[in-house]
Deep mutational scan, measured.
Amino acid sequence: MRVFPVYAPKLIVKHARIFLTGVIWVKDLGRLEFEKGRFLLPRKSLPKVKQAILELNELIEAQN
């Protein structure tokens, strides 16, 4: 598990694309899981977490 002390979308996306499957922890967002290079949306999450995951997945799609 990698810990990101700040929310840096480009760096987080780079990590997810390299490792494809895993878990990261982002300060103020908490634990985020990714599989096959995409972030998974938890069943229950705060609106800011949901927005961050959608933003990260959009960045991943834009890079493909």
Rank of each mutant, 00 (worst) to 15 (best):
M1P: 15
M1D: 15
M1H: 15
M1F: 02
M1Q: 15
M1K: 14
M1W: 00
M1I: 15
R2K: 14
R2E: 15
R2N: 14
R2T: 15
R2I: 15
V3E: 15
V3M: 02
V3D: 13
V3G: 08
V3Q: 14
V3F: 15
V3Y: 15
F4V: 02
F4W: 01
F4Q: 00
F4M: 03
F4C: 06
F4P: 01
F4D: 01
P5W: 15
P5H: 15
P5V: 13
P5S: 06
V6T: 08
V6S: 04
V6H: 06
V6M: 07
V6A: 04
V6W: 12
V6E: 12
Y7G: 01
Y7W: 12
Y7Q: 01
Y7S: 00
Y7K: 00
Y7R: 01
Y7T: 00
Y7M: 03
Y7L: 03
Y7H: 01
A8K: 06
A8H: 11
A8S: 09
A8Y: 08
A8G: 03
A8C: 14
A8M: 14
A8P: 00
P9A: 07
P9N: 02
P9I: 03
P9T: 03
P9R: 03
P9G: 04
P9F: 02
P9E: 03
K10M: 13
K10T: 13
K10S: 12
L11R: 08
L11Y: 06
L11D: 13
L11Q: 10
L11C: 13
L11V: 07
I12V: 04
I12W: 00
I12A: 01
I12H: 01
I12L: 04
I12P: 01
I12Q: 01
I12K: 01
I12S: 03
I12D: 02
V13I: 08
V13C: 06
V13Y: 03
V13R: 02
V13T: 08
V13A: 14
K14A: 14
K14D: 13
K14Y: 08
K14R: 11
K14E: 13
K14C: 14
H15P: 01
H15R: 02
H15T: 04
H15I: 04
H15L: 04
H15E: 03
H15A: 04
A16T: 11
A16G: 02
A16H: 00
A16M: 04
A16C: 09
R17D: 07
R17M: 11
R17H: 10
R17P: 01
R17C: 13
R17Q: 13
R17Y: 08
R17T: 11
I18M: 06
I18A: 06
I18C: 14
I18Y: 15
I18P: 01
I18E: 12
F19V: 14
F19Y: 14
F19I: 14
F19K: 14
F19Q: 12
F19A: 14
F19G: 04
F19N: 11
F19L: 11
L20P: 04
L20H: 07
L20F: 07
L20W: 10
L20D: 10
L20C: 13
L20E: 12
T21V: 13
T21N: 09
T21D: 09
T21P: 01
T21L: 05
T21H: 13
G22R: 01
G22N: 02
G22Q: 01
G22K: 02
G22E: 02
G22H: 02
G22S: 03
G22A: 03
V23R: 14
V23Y: 13
V23S: 08
V23P: 03
V23T: 12
V23F: 04
V23D: 07
V23I: 12
I24F: 04
I24S: 01
I24V: 05
I24M: 07
I24E: 00
I24K: 03
I24D: 00
W25A: 05
W25N: 04
V26S: 01
V26D: 00
V26F: 01
V26Y: 01
V26I: 09
V26C: 05
V26T: 02
K27D: 15
K27Q: 12
K27M: 14
K27Y: 15
K27W: 13
K27H: 15
D28F: 11
D28T: 13
D28W: 14
L29P: 01
L29G: 00
L29A: 00
L29V: 12
L29C: 04
L29R: 02
L29E: 01
L29D: 01
G30R: 00
G30F: 03
G30Y: 03
G30C: 03
G30E: 02
R31N: 04
R31I: 05
R31C: 14
R31H: 04
R31A: 02
R31L: 05
R31E: 15
L32K: 00
L32T: 00
L32V: 06
L32E: 02
L32S: 03
E33T: 15
E33M: 13
E33R: 15
F34I: 06
F34R: 01
F34T: 00
F34K: 00
F34S: 00
E35W: 10
E35G: 06
E35A: 14
E35T: 10
E35N: 12
E35F: 10
E35S: 12
K36W: 11
K36H: 14
K36T: 15
K36L: 09
K36P: 03
K36F: 08
K36N: 12
K36Y: 08
K36A: 11
G37T: 07
G37S: 07
G37L: 06
G37Q: 06
G37A: 08
G37C: 10
R38S: 08
R38I: 08
R38L: 12
R38Y: 07
R38Q: 07
R38V: 11
R38E: 10
F39H: 15
F39M: 04
F39K: 06
F39V: 02
F39G: 04
F39S: 09
F39N: 04
F39R: 04
L40H: 07
L40Q: 10
L40D: 04
L40E: 04
L40T: 08
L41N: 08
L41E: 08
L41V: 08
L41P: 13
L41M: 08
L41Y: 11
P42H: 13
P42S: 08
P42W: 06
P42A: 09
P42T: 09
P42V: 07
P42K: 14
P42G: 07
P42Q: 05
R43E: 08
R43I: 07
R43G: 08
R43P: 13
R43K: 08
R43H: 06
R43Q: 09
R43W: 05
K44F: 08
K44C: 11
K44R: 13
K44P: 05
K44M: 05
K44W: 08
K44G: 06
K44I: 05
S45N: 11
S45V: 13
S45G: 08
S45E: 09
L46R: 15
L46P: 15
L46W: 14
L46G: 12
L46T: 10
L46S: 14
L46M: 11
P47D: 08
P47E: 04
P47A: 14
P47M: 10
P47S: 12
P47Q: 13
K48Y: 05
K48A: 08
K48N: 07
K48E: 06
K48Q: 08
K48H: 08
K48P: 05
K48C: 11
K48D: 05
V49R: 06
V49A: 05
V49Y: 05
V49P: 03
K50G: 05
K50A: 07
K50M: 07
K50L: 06
K50D: 06
K50S: 07
Q51A: 11
Q51L: 12
Q51I: 08
Q51Y: 10
Q51K: 12
Q51E: 07
Q51M: 13
A52R: 10
A52N: 02
A52C: 09
A52L: 04
A52W: 02
A52H: 06
A52V: 07
A52E: 01
A52F: 02
A52P: 00
A52Y: 02
I53G: 00
I53Y: 04
I53E: 00
I53V: 09
I53T: 06
I53A: 07
L54P: 00
L54W: 09
L54E: 07
L54T: 11
L54S: 09
E55S: 06
E55H: 08
E55T: 05
E55K: 07
L56M: 08
L56V: 03
L56E: 15
L56G: 01
L56Q: 00
N57H: 02
N57W: 03
N57Q: 03
N57T: 03
N57V: 03
E58G: 06
E58T: 11
E58V: 11
E58L: 14
E58F: 08
L59V: 08
L59P: 01
L59D: 04
L59E: 10
L59F: 05
L59T: 05
I60Q: 05
I60K: 02
I60A: 07
I60N: 05
I60W: 11
I60L: 10
E61F: 08
E61K: 06
E61H: 07
E61D: 11
E61T: 09
A62Y: 10
A62E: 13
A62L: 12
A62K: 08
A62V: 12
Q63R: 07
Q63P: 06
Q63K: 09
Q63H: 11
N64V: 14
N64C: 14
N64P: 09
N64Y: 04
